[in-house]
Computed example of a mutant assay.
Amino acid sequence: MPSFLEAPITGAYQLVSFVASALEPVGGPYAAALAIVVCTLAVRLLLLPLSLAAVRGEKSRAVLMPQIQEISKKHAKNPERAQQEIAKLQADSGTTLLAGCLPMFAQLPFFWVLYTLFTRAVVGGEPNDLLSGTLFGAPIGVHWPVFATTPAYVGLALLLAVVAFFSARRQLARLDASATPMSRNLARLLPFGTLLTAAFIPLAAGLYLLTTTTWTVVERTILLR
């Protein structure tokens, strides 16, 4: 791995290790898992301005939707002209489709660092002590076995499914009558992609995924009332 990529991993290791050490008196063997949750919440707090911008953009797009639909209908035979008109409308209103994706894109580096951190036995030339952390008997550095019956994996799967259910319900509720069947199916199914993702990442990264998706559902429920 290039040396410039080692710095964030080493820094993350030191940070998570520090938080885990601080939580050890109350967390015991779960200190590393709790540290992941705490660090994830800290990341989401740092990204809150982007989330607020995304919510403002979503509300603005909802206001513009009747005009967007009118433009699409007016230039149905000229999709390129319709896209130009819609882009101009969004530019004039200060609305951009990208704003809604900013929190997700901004989290990708954090997710990559955490994934890498819990898939390496050595970090910064030293043994990765975080891999000794457990959650209900399951090492947080191992991947999720597809047919595992360990309580940690079963609990993670159930919680991810619950969060995905509420996320899907919220997205479906925000679709208007003009939404296509494909859009509704995507809104219904995409949130459950977290279950598939969790099958290919360490338990530690699964904890990050559970914490951040839960934050997103709660955050959007509060801000998009």
Rank of each mutant, 00 (worst) to 15 (best):
F192A: 03
I86M: 01
A138D: 01
T149L: 13
A82C: 10
A53Y: 00
S3R: 14
A204I: 08
W112V: 15
L135P: 00
N78F: 06
T216H: 04
A168F: 01
L135N: 02
A82W: 00
S93R: 01
A148M: 11
L224W: 04
K59Q: 15
S183N: 07
Y115T: 09
L23Y: 08
N128A: 14
E24R: 12
F192K: 02
Y30D: 09
R184I: 07
L175S: 02
L196Q: 06
A12W: 05
P151E: 06
A32M: 10
R56V: 00
K59V: 07
A164Y: 00
Q84A: 15
F110W: 13
L190N: 05
V63Q: 03
L203E: 01
V162Q: 03
R61F: 01
L46W: 12
A121I: 15
A32C: 10
G125E: 13
T149S: 14
P151Y: 10
T150L: 13
V38P: 04
A138I: 05
V43T: 12
N78S: 15
L186Q: 04
S17C: 10
T221H: 13
P145E: 05
F118N: 08
G155R: 07
T96F: 00
T211E: 03
L195M: 12
F165M: 05
S93K: 02
L190W: 09
S3K: 15
L131C: 13
Y208K: 06
D92E: 14
A32P: 03
P191W: 01
C39N: 08
R61G: 01
F18R: 15
F111I: 15
S183E: 11
P181R: 05
L89S: 00
A22P: 11
D92K: 12
G133F: 05
A198V: 09
I36K: 04
L196K: 08
S21G: 14
T211P: 09
A87C: 06
L131H: 06
V123W: 07
P2D: 14
P139L: 10
T194Q: 09
L186C: 02
E219P: 01
S17P: 13
R44T: 07
A31K: 04
P49H: 11
A91M: 08
L23C: 07
L203S: 02
R188C: 03
A152K: 01
A161R: 04
Y115D: 08
A179Q: 03
A54H: 00
I222D: 09
E6M: 15
A106W: 00
K77H: 15
T211F: 04
W215Q: 03
M104Y: 02
Q14I: 07
L159T: 10
S178H: 10
L210V: 07
E70T: 01
P139G: 12
G137K: 13
L15A: 12
P151T: 10
L5G: 15
Q14F: 08
G141V: 07
T149G: 10
P2G: 13
S93F: 00
G193M: 03
F165L: 10
T150N: 14
L207Q: 03
G28Y: 12
